[in-house]
């Protein structure tokens, strides 16, 4: 971006509202996914009893409802986080445009 001779400038955070810091990107990926997973879990399990689901799919796997809810939530979170991650990846312009 800047040539090495250029003076290191400390940008004003107010003019840089979206610092693309790695930790920040991880937050942007995981946090909305967490919220969405929460909503999805509530909607899904209010209609479907994990116990019924288990009996109809893998009856031999004896897990509690709590485990069912938890696994469901973590799965929703993982899927939503994957979607977030792809969005972040695609939102970055292709490198060659600015990294000459």
């Amino acid at each position: 971006m800047t040539s090495p001779s250029a003076e290191p400038t400390r940008p004003n955070p107010k003019t840089q509202p979206h610092p693309p810091h790695r930790a920040w990107l991880i937050g942007v990926c995981l946090w909305p996914a967490f919220l969405s997973a929460g909503v999805a879990t509530m909607l899904f399990f209010s209609g479907i009893d994990p116990e019924t689901l288990r009996l109809q799919t893998i009856p031999d796997w004896e897990i509690s409802r709590t485990a069912g809810y938890s696994i469901g939530f973590l799965m929703f979170w993982a899927v939503a986080a994957l979607s977030s991650a792809v969005s972040i990846f695609l939102a970055h312009p292709p490198r060659r445009h600015y990294d000459r």
């Binding site: 971006m1 800047t2 400390r10 940008p11 004003n12 955070p13 840089q16 610092p19 693309p20 810091h21 790695r22 600015y98 990294d99």
Partner: peptide, 9 residues
């Protein structure tokens, strides 16, 4: 990542 240098810690 070049963008990182833009970010004030």
């Amino acid at each position: 990542m070049t963008a990182e240098s833009m970010y004030a810690a």
